[in-house]
Amino acid sequence: MMDHAAFPPVPGPLAGLIGLAPPPLLAPALDRILRETLRSRPDLVARLGVHATKTFLIDPTDLPLVFLVRPDPARPSIEARRRRRGLPHGWDGRIAGPLSALLGLVHGAVDGDALFFSRDIAMEGDTAAVVALRNAIDDAELDLLSLAAESFGPVAAVGGRLARPFAAGLARATGVALLRSRGPL
């Protein structure tokens, strides 16, 4: 399991580079990944229940972007927004923390309650919706690299598989959970 005390921030130059990406250009890629996630993980939607139609603000505090996510299988949407204009409105629940902590949660490398006890992450708004999202994601055993690759067809899926050893090495070097965690470490 990842060390809860060590969530390295996104290096400043990399965060700056990410911040240069125009949010409208990110939209199609993010949308495809979200749709692939909901299509391939129907249990995730079932676990969200009534909370699937709510809007979640995912707030990586060391990035210049935040993400508004609506995991509604009928009308899924994900939207990147620049942080410099302040946090956007129109969300039900917010989860905030360093990107490495949020990746650790998504990939099952860290425990959400423990991050909450230690104040590495914070939540706000509709607590029930945030708890449902946390539990649904933990059960879904997501792997963002695989999902991203599979969202763009078979060629990209092969590329994703080829990139796995590199991502695993980068994860070991940085201590960031870039891939799905497998069992006790």
């Binding site: 949660l105 099952g108 490398a109 425990d111 959400g112 309650d113 006790p184």
Partner: peptide, 13 residues
């Protein structure tokens, strides 16, 4: 039971 699979793995092992 309200905790994650990361908690379960670490504590059980």
């Amino acid at each position: 039971r309200q905790r994650s699979r990361a908690y379960v793995s670490a504590v059980v092992s």
